[in-house]
């Protein structure tokens, strides 16, 4: 085999998958396989290698955070939001996870022939509203239209730039044994809201997406507590996948307490019916904060003064034992591992 990576053949064995499956975009093991086997080897550098939600760059003495994201959600309008505010909030939150104050974002639209202009208007209105709320400016953009059947109404790609808050050093590698894991509220609302709408399920109460920008709340924490080690928004693949990534890259263990993880009654009910594990369901307004235990009470106090953090709680600890594994202490007192998701969760038969 040649020493030059560009002359090598694809390192993912053909016996695994010859083609991209939906699961390659699910945020789990198959996504990680693409990153590890294709993107890192071909494109890797010391910044990309940090494996964070965004890149932290220093240019002319200014520390910036830079991120990109694409939004392909179906349905494009869902309880609690639409693809427009989701795109802004998602990008803002990725910057927040770098310890930055979001400043500027770009938007690139890929529109499918036949999309009602009225829908685009509604989506862009939501973008404006979400951008104003987060204090970011949309400073550049692009529009492309593809033929009928070549897209799915509207896809949005974004990038975002933020200014890293001085004195912070956020990254999964900072995670240390003894740290606490805090989340700002209940999990799985977004994924279940989307799935319920997509599949036409209705429950007693409408389950709404938790899509929200978290910059105001997190900035307040970071202004006071520079000791925060990791920030991560548990989006695709849910809480379980986000914590597995952190545990893997920091070579620490993580222990979660099932009874501390908030899940709304209606989401729990939906998960029971559909056979889904809420630990793997996407969130769009949640953030995991990993920090020294001594600072937890102060951080929780700040979080709970914000609408998005009212139900903030400590859900687990970072440990020295079982590095690379996430363990769950169940409600009945036993302990098991929480693995990274393999593909899409598929409803069970009975």
């Amino acid at each position: 085999m040649s020493g030059n990576i560009l002359e090598q053949s694809c390192p993912i064995p053909k016996s695994d998958y010859e083609h991209i499956l939906l699961a390659h975009g699910g945020g789990g093991k198959l996504t990680q396989q693409l990153i590890d086997k294709i993107f890192y080897p071909l494109l890797g550098n010391e910044i990309l290698a940090r494996g964070h939600d965004g890149a932290t760059l220093t240019t002319s003495g200014v520390k910036l955070a830079f991120t990109t994201d694409s939004f392909v959600v179906d349905p494009i309008f869902f309880p609690g939001g639409n693809i427009g505010d989701l795109a802004v909030n998602g990008t803002v939150n990725d910057l927040v996870c770098c310890g930055a104050i979001p400043k500027f974002i770009s938007l690139a639209f890929i529109l499918e022939e036949g999309l009602p202009i009225e829908d685009l208007w509604e989506i862009v209105k939501s973008i404006r509203h979400a951008a104003d709320k987060s204090g970011v400016k949309v400073v550049t953009g692009d529009t492309k239209v593809v033929g009928k059947g070549k897209g799915d109404r509207i896809f949005i790609n974004t990038s975002g730039i933020g200014e890293v808050i001085e004195g912070t050093n956020i990254g999964p590698e900072q995670c240390s044994p003894g740290d606490v894991i805090i989340i700002n509220g209940s999990i799985a609302d977004h994924g279940i809201a989307i799935m319920s709408k997509r599949e036409g399920f209705s429950f007693e109460t409408t389950i709404e997406s938790d899509t929200a920008s978290l910059n105001e709340m997190v900035t307040e924490v970071l202004n006071k507590y520079k000791s925060v080690h990791v920030l991560r928004d548990p989006t695709r693949g849910g809480l379980a996948s986000a914590l597995n990534e952190i545990s893997n890259s920091s070579k620490t263990g993580i222990t979660l307490y099932e009874d501390k993880i908030g899940i709304s009654e209606s989401v729990r009910g939906a998960c029971e019916i559909m056979g889904f594990d809420p630990l793997y369901i996407a969130n769009e307004g949640k953030i995991l904060m990993i920090l020294p235990e001594k600072d937890a009470p102060g951080v929780l106090d700040i979080l709970r003064t914000h609408r998005e953090g009212k139900e903030a709680a400590i859900i687990g600890y970072v440990t020295e034992e079982d590095p690379g594994f996430v363990k769950l202490r169940t409600t009945i007192g036993s302990s098991r591992i929480v693995d990274m998701i393999t593909g899409e969760q598929l409803p069970r038969i009975c």
Binding site: Y17, L30, I337, D339, G343, I349
Partner: peptide, 24 residues
């Protein structure tokens, strides 16, 4: 689970999948 040889490794009711997913 990402590349099963047999069904028990992939089904949400398969024993191999249960051991792989929950056991350390």
């Amino acid at each position: 689970p990402e590349k099963p040889l047999g069904a028990p490794m992939v089904s949400s009711e398969g024993a191999c999948a249960a051991y792989f997913k929950y056991s350390i």
